[in-house]
């Protein structure tokens, strides 16, 4: 157990030594990994913020149900009350024919309303759904259309469908980017490790000749790859934080222009941990493949 611990500490020391031996090269590699990590993660952060912003808008989605003209007002009111209790509906506002006219007059259209022989407006229900996903809206729309009293339903779901499709596209893009840049990260690590292996060729050869196992030779490189991946992940996180800081004030301006308050959210703790864990793992994997390939190439085995 003690020997095992000593081995690992020693490997860690060697890995740290190799960082110190080439600080500039290491810094650049970490920066490259940081950028590779920051691109999909930054896009992810942007998307989750957009999603949150869109979520704040969604409750304003409304369906307007026009009731047939010959239906008496008390029946319309009863329908409004019963709909208000149904699942999938958050709120029902009843606007009677008379209220409708008053609203038009209040809106400065009294000239027009005064010229009308009779009130042409139907009783109207303004329905706020509790779930504003496109599927739920469509389902609610179909349900309301089947009602006997319904004349017409007006619902504008197109922009929600578009937004939802865009978010889906964005999420797929994040996956694609993450996969591609993850591959790049492993390749970057494999390459830096390869260079190190060639610098350390003598040592590896001697170690093999005097009885070092592959595992013994591999270990410091794996530590190096893992630490480099972790440092790259931290650099990526720093880039995201800096980027967020940079665009925060302009986001606030946009939000004010839309009459909303909105603040950017960074990565959550679990998201940060999976980012760091992922970049560490990819660095480790890159090192593993690189060392294994080199060990097979050396003739002493």
């Amino acid at each position: 157990m003690k020997a095992w611990l000593t081995h690992h500490l020693h490997s860690l020391k060697i890995a740290a030594q190799r960082f110190r031996d080439a600080p500039l090269a290491t810094l650049f590699t970490i920066l490259v990994i940081g950028v590779a990590v920051a691109m999909p993660s930054g896009l992810y952060v942007l998307l989750s913020n957009l999603d949150r912003a869109a979520g704040g808008v969604k409750p304003q989605v409304e369906l307007t149900l026009f009731i047939k003209a010959d239906v008496p007002e008390n029946e319309s009111r009863a329908l409004a009350a019963s709909l208000g209790k149904q699942a999938g509906i958050a709120e029902v506002v009843f606007v009677s024919k008379a209220d409708g006219i008053k609203k038009l007059e209040a809106a400065g259209l009294s000239d027009i309303t005064a010229g009308l022989p009779a009130n042409p407006l139907p009783d109207t229900l303004i329905i706020t759904p509790s779930d504003s996903s496109p599927a739920a809206l469509q389902e609610l729309n179909d349900r309301l259309e089947k009602l006997e009293l319904t004349q017409q339903i007006v619902m504008d779901t197109d922009w929600i469908k578009r937004l939802s499709a865009l978010m889906g596209l964005g999420k797929n893009l994040v996956f694609l980017l993450a996969a591609l840049l993850g591959l790049a990260l492993a390749a970057i690590t494999a390459n830096t490790i390869r260079l190190q292996i060639y610098a350390q060729k003598d040592e590896i050869e001697v170690a093999q000749l005097i009885g070092a196992t592959d595992r013994f030779i591999r270990r410091p490189f794996l530590y190096f790859g893992g630490i480099q991946g972790l440092a790259g992940g931290l650099a990526g996180w720093a880039i995201i934080l800096l980027g967020g800081y940079f665009i925060e004030s302009s986001v606030a301006q946009v939000a004010v222009a839309y009459g909303a308050t909105f603040d950017l959210h960074g990565l959550g703790l679990d998201e940060l941990l999976s980012l760091l864990g992922g970049s560490t793992l990819l660095g480790w994997l890159g090192a593993y493949f690189s060392v294994n390939q080199a060990l097979r190439q050396f003739a002493n085995g």
């Binding site: 020997a3 000593t6 081995h7 020693h10 003598d202 040592e203 001697v206 170690a207 070092a212």
Partner: peptide, 24 residues
């Protein structure tokens, strides 16, 4: 010889023991 020139005489001789898990 195949010595390692990046470490001391002592560490060169230590390497085989180190590989076998001996230390201290």
């Amino acid at each position: 010889h195949k010595l390692l020139y990046d470490r001391s005489v002592f560490d060169n001789v230590l390497l085989p023991l180190h590989i076998q898990g001996m230390s201290g």
